[in-house]
Computed example of a mutant assay.
Amino acid sequence: MALKVGDTVPNFQAKATNGELFDSANIIGKKPLVLYFYPKDDTPGCTQQACSFRDNYEVFTDLGAEVIGVSGDSTASHEKFAAKYKLPFTLLSDSDKKLRNLFGVPTALFGLIPGRVTYVVDDKGVIRFIFDNMSGKIHIEKALQFLKKII
């Protein structure tokens, strides 16, 4: 069952960029969160998306929000990707697809590519906006637009 607008995000844990265990309870319900799922590290669309979040990261943090990216890549892959592009936010490894399944992130292109979906979660832990689109360009704009409405 996919999470939808109005649902409270359940607690989850995943390996973070630094190899440590990330616990959602440290953020969810305490501050707004922009959680974005993307297909793969260091591919053109995903790099463009990550760099757009990087370039706007201060805008998100000034609004009190955290940004977290999620893909099925390993923590080693995430570390290289984050270092190469100087990403200031956490990337979570979802190699077992537990987070994709928890959120109900669909696959794209006939089930061949992991989907690209962005969730805006308010400071109470409730999903307020979901944007599902394979173009990495417009997720940041849509997330910021909606985040500004709920702050």
Rank of each mutant, 00 (worst) to 15 (best):
M1P: 11
A2H: 09
L3H: 04
V5S: 11
G6E: 12
G6M: 03
D7P: 01
D7C: 09
D7G: 09
T8M: 13
V9H: 02
P10V: 09
P10Y: 11
N11V: 06
A14P: 00
A16H: 05
A16P: 03
G19I: 08
E20F: 08
L21D: 07
F22I: 01
D23W: 00
A25S: 15
I27M: 10
G29E: 11
G29I: 08
G29D: 12
P32H: 12
P32K: 14
L35S: 04
L35C: 01
F37C: 01
P39D: 11
P39W: 11
P39L: 12
P39V: 13
K40Q: 13
D41G: 05
D41V: 04
D42L: 07
T43G: 09
C46Y: 01
Q48G: 14
Q48T: 14
Q49A: 12
A50E: 05
C51A: 03
F53H: 09
F53Y: 15
F60Y: 10
T61K: 15
D62G: 07
D62W: 02
L63F: 11
A65S: 10
E66G: 01
V67Y: 03
V67P: 03
I68G: 09
V70K: 03
S71Y: 02
S74A: 08
T75V: 15
E79S: 11
K80R: 14
F81A: 03
A83Q: 13
A83D: 10
A83C: 01
K84F: 00
Y85F: 14
L87F: 08
L87N: 05
L87E: 06
L87R: 03
L87W: 10
S93V: 00
D94C: 05
D94I: 01
D96V: 08
K98S: 14
K98E: 13
R100E: 04
N101T: 10
G104C: 09
G104I: 00
V105E: 06
V105K: 02
V105A: 10
P106L: 12
P106C: 07
L109Y: 12
L109V: 04
G111R: 08
L112C: 01
P114S: 13
P114E: 13
G115K: 01
V117Q: 06
T118G: 12
V120K: 09
V121F: 05
V121K: 05
D122E: 11
D122H: 06
D123N: 15
D123E: 14
K124M: 06
K124G: 03
G125T: 03
G125I: 00
V126L: 05
V126Y: 06
I127P: 00
R128M: 05
F131I: 05
D132R: 04
M134E: 12
S135V: 03
S135T: 10
I138F: 11
I140V: 15
K142H: 07
A143R: 05
Q145I: 01
F146V: 08
K148H: 02
K149P: 00
K149C: 01
I150N: 03
I151M: 11
